[in-house]
Simulated assay, not measured.
Amino acid sequence: MASNRNFLIAAIIFVSLLAWLANAQLSPNFYARTCPNIQGIVRNAMMQAVGRESRMGASILRMFFHDCFVNGCDASVLLDDTAIFTGEKTAQPNQNSLRGFEVIDAIKSRVEAACNATVSCADILALAARDGVILLGGPSWTVPLGRRDARTASLSGANSQLPSPSSSLADLISSFAAQGLNASDMTALSGGHAIGLARCSTFRSRIYNDTNIDASFATNRRTDCPASGGDTNLAPLDQTTNHFDNNYYQNLVAQRGLLHSDQELFNGGSQDGLVRTYSNSYMAFSSDFAAAMVKMSNISPLTGTNGEIRRNCRVVN
């Protein structure tokens, strides 16, 4: 009996050690020998993409977020549907919303030309998201590398695990907690809305029905977002949509958050104090945002022999 118990304990320790080793494989220097120019390749491609369209920095950041929140940062969001496979692109939060896939394709082509079958699409997306933020004036952070790509995707996960623009504060906290991120991480990561645009369909209810909204702000937003129709009309998430700053939080304090879920961060709840801090200090926000991005990028990575290195980010090998 004792020997069986000892065997079970040893087996648990062994499995735990394997899990630790798998996570330990993520390292900023993962490609130091196999693809030493990877960071420069991604950065140059993102400079071109953001140079053509500033909004692309925000689009790639959002894509990375949507990837990591569904089964971890595994590039599953990049997979196209096929006759025998359903990916995540047609999920309600992604369909006709996520954009920039062609940018990741272009980067992957350059990476493959330099380092064939070496760098995962998951790592390319993580680097591109960081570089997009930097190129729009935001902070830098060290990206841990060594992720591998998923061979599967989860349409149901994309539909259920991504926060909704209509989420309450409790819903947001719960959604982030499910990914190992705390409420402070959530509030910092929400600052990604310092850049980019949102569709009318995602904020219509906010500007017509919410009461915790600045009246002149609501009136201005209604100009391009009628009570019906115009679902794809766009509005900036904050007034400096192509510059990464802390105006997003200043807007929340002034009740000018564009999405209902944005304003929930400053609505008499637990995050009011942190929102005020960020609204007064870009340094505090940018530092916490960078740290939270690293934390998010470590959500359930595939490492070691798990997954694969896709040659084409849209399809499994």
Rank of each mutant, 00 (worst) to 15 (best):
G157Q: 06
M186P: 02
R110K: 13
I124R: 11
L252T: 03
I309A: 02
L197Q: 14
A114M: 04
L265R: 02
I38G: 07
G304A: 12
R62Q: 14
P144A: 12
A122F: 07
G57Y: 03
A215P: 00
T86L: 09
T241I: 08
Q263M: 00
Y31Q: 06
Y249Q: 03
V50R: 03
R55Y: 10
F69L: 04
M293H: 03
F14Y: 10
A158Y: 08
C115W: 09
V315S: 10
L252F: 09
V143N: 03
A10N: 08
R206M: 00
Q250V: 11
P93M: 08
I13M: 12
R222K: 02
E112G: 02
R221D: 00
E264C: 09
M283H: 12
Q263D: 04
R62F: 02
Q179F: 11
L258E: 06
A194C: 07
D238P: 03
D262K: 04
F244A: 02
L237W: 10
I41L: 14
N94H: 13
F289N: 02
S216T: 08
I173T: 12
V133D: 08
G40Q: 09
D262W: 05
V103Y: 09
M47Y: 05
S27M: 04
S154R: 00
M283F: 05
D288M: 04
F217E: 05
Y208C: 02
D288H: 14
D210E: 14
L17V: 12
N116T: 15
A83G: 04
S140K: 12
S201R: 14
G51F: 04
L127F: 03
G268L: 10
R151Q: 15
S216H: 01
I299S: 02
A22H: 06
P226C: 00
S140F: 14
P28E: 05
G40C: 07
M63P: 00
L172I: 11
S261A: 15
Q179R: 15
D272R: 00
L155F: 13
N4M: 12
G72D: 02
A215G: 01
H66N: 15
S76G: 15
Y248K: 05
F176E: 01
E308I: 15
M283K: 13
P226A: 05
